[in-house]
Every structure is written in structure tokens, then in C-alpha cells.
């Protein structure tokens, strides 16, 4: 049985992931970094093939918040990619461990992309492996590792998952 405190934490972290996903889907990418806690927070996309094999091979490696801001700056000012909508479908968040007030959390996600002529396809399905801190009323990611099962990707990966 999961205790009430853990269930409450899971609800708050689920809400964090829903807000995070909506922020991306609504293209409010400048606010994306605000879901992370402190300048040292990390954001990685680690395709499952490599994660399972104990290899690095990250698709995106942001070791801190400045690198996350750079990623969005590049996306806005420089990078050219397919015109599309993203639609995240995010499952409930499950706490799998707690250490020093940092929750270790797993959440399934699926991103469906819709192209400029309105066709939709699954772009990426996988799991968020998050380290989350709860401060007062807010929840933030200390670390977010996206592990796509879809390790053979089609089309550019421009927008964070």
C-alpha cells in the first residue's frame, strides 16, 4: 500500500509533468526552463538502446540551465526543422524512491506529431526518469532524463520531449 504522503507527492508531480507537457505543446518554450530547479539542473535525452546498454549516446545533453536556455535560443534563432504540432500524452507519475527529499519518479509519455498538412504520427514514446523536489506549493525537476523507447527516430528532434 502506498501511503497518503506518497500519493499526494505523486499527484503534485503528475501535475508538474502535465504542466511541463502543456508548456511544450503550446510552444511556450521560453518558460520550459522554469520547470527546473536551480542553475545546476540537468536535462538529457537518452535513447533506450543506449540507456539499456549502459552507453551514453545522448540526443540532447544539457548539463545545466544555461545549456537549456541555449537550446531554446538556438531553436528560436537558428535551427530549421519540420513545421509541426507536438501533442504530449503523459501518464501518471509514480514515485519509485526518495532520498534527501528528492523524489525519484517514473512517468510514461507519448508525443504525437502532426505535420503541416494535418497528418498525425507517433513521434516518440518512452519514459521520463525524473528527480523532483517539492518546495512548499511548487514542484520542480532537479533532473529530467527522457528515455525514448523510440530509439530509431524519424524527422528532426528540435523541440525538447
Amino acid at each position: 500500500m502506498t501511503d497518503m504522503a506518497t500519493l499526494e507527492a505523486e499527484l503534485r508531480i503528475s501535475r508538474l509533468n502535465l504542466d511541463y507537457a502543456r508548456c511544450i505543446d503550446e510552444d511556450r518554450l521560453e518558460s520550459w526552463v522554469d520547470f527546473f530547479d536551480g542553475e545546476e539542473a540537468r536535462y538529457l535525452i537518452h535513447p533506450r538502446e543506449n540507456a539499456d546498454a549502459g552507453l551514453e549516446g545522448y540526443w540532447m545533453y544539457c548539463r545545466n540551465k544555461p545549456m537549456m536556455r541555449d537550446r531554446i535560443l538556438a531553436l528560436r534563432k537558428a535551427n530549421i526543422y519540420n513545421i509541426h504540432y507536438d501533442r504530449h500524452i503523459v501518464g501518471g507519475s509514480q514515485v519509485v524512491g526518495v532520498e534527501d527529499g528528492v523524489y525519484d519518479v517514473r512517468t510514461s509519455y507519448c508525443v504525437i506529431q502532426t505535420d503541416v498538412e494535418g497528418r498525425s504520427e507517433v513521434f516518440s514514446a518512452g519514459e521520463y526518469r525524473d528527480k523532483v523536489v517539492l518546495n512548499g506549493g511548487g514542484a520542480k525537476f532537479r533532473e529530467k532524463i527522457v528515455v525514448p523507447d523510440t530509439f530509431n527516430i524519424e524527422r528532426p528532434l528540435a523541440v525538447p520531449l
Partner: peptide, 23 residues
Amino acid sequence: RRMQNNMFGPAGYVAMEDAEAME
């Protein structure tokens, strides 16, 4: 190497456009 890896691959800062152009 880990840092510069951001430049290439499907999410590469100077590579992601290639897929779009070819398609």
C-alpha cells in the same frame, strides 16, 4: 565530447536541418 555531441545526431545544432531538407 559529450558537450559537442549536441552539435550532431537527430537533435544536432548543425545537423537536424539535413533530414528536413532531404525529405
